[in-house]
Amino acid sequence: MIPAAFEYHRPSELSAVIALLSEHGDEARVVAGGHSLIPMMKLRMAALDHLIDLRDIAELRGIEVGATIRIGAMTTQHELLTHAGLAEAAPILAEAARQIADPQVRYLGTLGGNVANGDPGNDMPGLMQCLDARFTLTGPDGTREVAARDFYEAAYMTAREDDEILVAITFPRPGAGHAYEKQKRKIGDYATAAAAVQLEAADSKVSAASIAMTNLSDVPVWSAAAGAALVGSACGTPAVEAAVAAMLADIDPVEDSRGPVEFKKHVAATVLRRAIARAWSRV
């Protein structure tokens, strides 16, 4: 658990980060909260010569709440939990953040690090797909946006180029019908299965539904079919079971110490049922 030697950089300008990334290529990595990268370095599973700490870059911080919500990439999980306007505008963020590890981790862990690292165990990627968020990336050639639903290619493989960094996350202000349901073995563990659900209603029927699952594939799974199965229903058993069946067809869990595939599918179905019920109760 002793990392190899590396050069530590702590620039205060975004342009300096881009310059360092351009100069050192894949020998450099940016670090936000460090909860994924630092353990990997200590296990010597991540080898890098240059570590670029983003904590001094002011423009990566801040939460703006309007019709669109914009969250700076370096916003910590703790800030997500304590921001008054955000709790009202998008309460599902706090519901999910509260289930990430413990307060010490949440003081350092960031939204940007959580979504950009591409770890399938992380909670925020699935949630951002549920919210149809867009990720703002800045690189030497300027700034571009990528939809969260298009961002994840495989475990730790994303649409971000090596010389780009994630600057901000934006998403439309969601409706009230939300739930983030997570099963884990203990505090600090990745999800055995987790479900993010946002529902909208008109005339006591579901008018729009978005469902995403966490840690049940090598990427987060936004299940369009599961959401579609709920539209037009009042979340009765047939519609919910159709959504569950559609979700199960989209996930691809693997066995690990949390349990075998069959168990994970069972838990995925259970957490989704619970999330739908809770989201519907809040519509």
Binding site: Q183, T192, R258, G259, E262, H266, V267
Partner: peptide, 16 residues
């Protein structure tokens, strides 16, 4: 008796 083993017990007893 972790979660999956308890689940397996319930599964084997036909409780699902």
């Amino acid at each position: 008796h972790d979660q999956w083993r308890i689940w397996k017990t319930a599964q084997d007893l036909g409780l699902h």
